[in-house]
Design a protein around this nucleic acid. Structure first.
Lengths: 192, 192
DNA sequence: TTCAGATTTAGACACTTGTATAAGCAATAG
DNA sequence: CTATTGCTTATACAAGTGTCTAAATCTGAA
């Protein structure tokens, strides 16, 4: 990403970011990612290509920004962080809600893109990374005789696995059932 | 892949496939994947672009064929399939050996490509799929009260996680230790 | 309000991509 | 041997990519 998201954006920049991401969301619901070109994005957004490349490296970069927009809902609040034992479930729930709230987008995307294609991959990876960042900072895995990062990786992969199962592979499950899956797969008492 | 790998290739086709894949292996050790163009591959291999596109859809397709070449070592023999309980460990060991035997290639690749980049991703996904195919056909997961495919997914993801940890993130471990990781993470008795 | 510094934009450049066509070549069956 | 079939190759095409320049425009602080 060429644009620095940490500094607060000018009104103009905000408009530009919004416009490009909205266009991308729109196009993702209409055609496969391979057929979405930077040219097309710019035409629809009414910005010249040069502006696109002021903000993003390429279309992958923009789509990552789109996931970032979606993930804004998650709110990693320091408050809950303390009650460490439960935090895996707490953040699982937040991700569950994000996936649920964007169900129609996901369905549209899956209509045009392979489950193992680049696009779905970038989506899944974005949230796997997100989960990993959250978990590695908020859980104490000291119990199991295993490298801590390895456990953190494993937990976040499993969280995403369950969400993929429910929302991308369409095996609907409410939170209660989702928790059961998660706990059985992770054998949770083992770690936390 | 445009070329049909199931039918046995003519001598000419063999030479062509060999040439393109060798060139790709060479280039992967020299520069990042994004800078490898189909043009360059063809120049080095001394084939015209048209020939490349006779065999592959694009450079991703070729790199997948490269993983296929590497994976040939694995040998999914029907013989072991029967002793189902142990087969997860057996196939883990085979993958372990494949990763170990190609350690220098992996090291080179990681020198030029991001750990979460497209190239490493395609490598990891190739072997995750491979493992999934093997496992879903050779293990009986009836014990745990969970969807079978979900468990199969989880097992193959965990296998790959451990191999990534050892060979891509460079936390060396012999097979014995690797088995310990795997068993603790999967809590193996739970499933098999 | 002004002006210096930053952003945006038009246009061009060298390069890549995937496809299509038709000519050339090689292996095989009759 | 030769006709047929299928693969290889030369070449061209329309499109896309990412970078660069210099001019235009905007913006915030004085």
């Amino acid at each position: 990403m060429k644009y620095d998201l940490t500094k607060k954006p000018t009104r103009g920049a905000q408009r530009t970011l919004e416009s490009f991401s909205q266009t991308m969301f729109k196009l993702l619901s209409e055609e496969p990612f391979e057929r979405i070109s930077v040219n097309k994005i710019c035409d629809i957004s009414n910005f010249p290509r040069a502006t696109f490349y002021n903000y993003f490296d390429d279309k992958f970069d923009l789509v990552d920004y789109c996931w970032y927009v979606i993930a804004q809902e998650i709110e990693v609040d320091k408050a809950t962080e303390v009650k460490s034992n439960q935090s895996l479930i707490i953040y699982f729930d937040r991700l569950y809600d994000v996936f649920k709230n964007n169900r129609h987008l996901l369905d549209n995307i899956l209509q045009y893109n392979e489950f193992s294609g680049q696009l779905v991959n970038s989506f899944v990876n974005y949230f796997k990374d997100k989960m990993q960042t959250i978990l590695s900072g908020s859980i104490d895995y000291s119990k199991a005789g295993l490298p801590v990062e390895l456990i953190a990786d494993h937990c976040s992969e499993t969280v995403i696995l369950v969400l993929k199962w429910i929302f991308l592979k369409h095996h609907d499950a409410d939170k209660r059932l989702a928790h059961t899956y998660l706990k059985k797969l992770l054998n949770l008492d083992q770690f936390i």
